[in-house]
Amino acid sequence: MDIPELKAFISVSDLGSFSKAAHALHISQPAISRRIQSLEQSLQQKLFDRDGQKIHLTPAGTLLKPKARDILAMVASTAETIKSIGDDIQGPLKLAISHHIAEHYLAPILSVFKETYPKVELIFKFVESEQGCTHITNGTMDIGFVTLPSEEMDKLVAQPMIKESLVLVAHKSHELAAIDSPHELMTRLPSTLTLLPPLSSFTGQQISTALNEMMITPKETIECNAFASLKALVVSGMGWGILPENLLSPELVSLFPGTQIQREIGIVHHTVRELSPAAKAFIALSQKIHRASDGYGFA
């Protein structure tokens, strides 16, 4: 089992075709077939089944795929680390990040990082936090700047950076905004349209837990990935919602002043793969700025 064989295996598995894999790797189809055959012989297991024109992983192939990704990612990361010894920090750094986190927290880090490490090529993938963690697990991105889940993630190390407060809000003209009694508000909220992030997301799971603790069970909800879009819906008066405190504006009122839902934002990386010097530098700089801000957002 060697690196070219593993690359051939991953390419065939991802593309579902020997010919497409050969084209992607710039080698002939017979060469791809020989590499797969050699890999199967060394493992003494069949890795692919054919169903007409379709190719499927066998149980052995399914087991091998994530491990093969880990091996290839570790080899690539090690090569970058070795190349950087004795040199300035350079090379690519692939960062998975959500739009909200990029908009509100990335700029202070990025401006200093680009000035300090001009030879690093930053490659961004803007995704939801859950997808970002999947990219880190699969080795397609180096680090993620994401909302952290409540529980530990398999194969990932999480480094908390920012505590972000979420608040229950409505437009100042909404009927809920005129209610002074907390008890009456608690009674009215469940029957009023609720605007939330997807409850299956890391943030949504934390919101769901908090609402359960407050004994609020919305009967009708609209879920949206983008906080900016949720804010627009709340501002339109459609219903009440939960937004980051840094998105509040004069036309919005907090329904329960002093009541906040806390979520943590931070950096994640793989537990096993060696971090490149560029990734280590980005994390160290983020931690430095985080400490200077006391963990409640970057100034």
Rank of each mutant, 00 (worst) to 15 (best):
E213W: 03
I10Y: 00
Q287R: 07
H26V: 06
E164N: 02
S286T: 12
S249N: 00
P118Q: 08
D154A: 01
V169I: 14
Q205D: 02
G86H: 10
M141W: 09
A228T: 11
A68M: 12
Y105T: 02
M141T: 13
S38G: 04
S150K: 09
Q44N: 15
A299Q: 08
S84R: 09
N246S: 09
G91T: 02
R188Y: 10
S173N: 12
S173I: 04
L47K: 07
K83L: 13
L72R: 06
K46V: 15
G132Y: 11
C224Y: 06
G132S: 15
M153C: 11
H174V: 11
E223I: 05
I283G: 06
G144L: 03
Y105W: 06
S38K: 06
L230N: 01
G61T: 02
L166E: 02
H270G: 06
H100S: 07
S28D: 10
Y105N: 00
S33R: 08
L57R: 15
I289C: 06
R50V: 14
P198A: 10
V268K: 02
Q44Y: 13
R188P: 03
A177D: 13
Q159K: 13
A96C: 12
L247Q: 14
I143F: 06
L196D: 07
I85P: 06
A22H: 00
A170C: 11
S42D: 05
I242T: 01
L57N: 10
E40Q: 15
I283D: 07
S249H: 03
I89Y: 00
F126V: 10
E164D: 07
P182R: 01
A8Q: 08
R188K: 14
D51S: 06
S181K: 10
P197R: 03
I85T: 13
F145A: 07
V253Q: 11
I3W: 07
H174I: 12
N138I: 12
S276H: 07
K54G: 05
D70Y: 03
L243T: 02
A279S: 07
P4I: 13
L95K: 04
A76M: 08
H270D: 11
K231A: 11
R35A: 05
T134R: 02
L6F: 00
L195G: 00
E220D: 08
A281R: 04
F48T: 08
H290E: 01
G241R: 07
L230K: 01
E164I: 05
I123L: 15
H270Q: 15
P149V: 04
C133V: 09
K125M: 11
P4H: 10
E130C: 12
I179H: 06
R69W: 01
S77G: 05
D142N: 08
E103Q: 03
E130V: 15
V12P: 00
F113D: 04
V167N: 01
E5Q: 15
D294F: 08
I207D: 09
D142K: 01
F256T: 05
I85K: 12
A107L: 01
I289E: 01
K125L: 11
Y296K: 15
S19G: 00
A102F: 05
P4E: 09
P244L: 05
M1I: 09
I55Q: 06
E274G: 09
K163L: 13
V272G: 01
Q44P: 06
L93S: 04
K83F: 09
H26K: 12
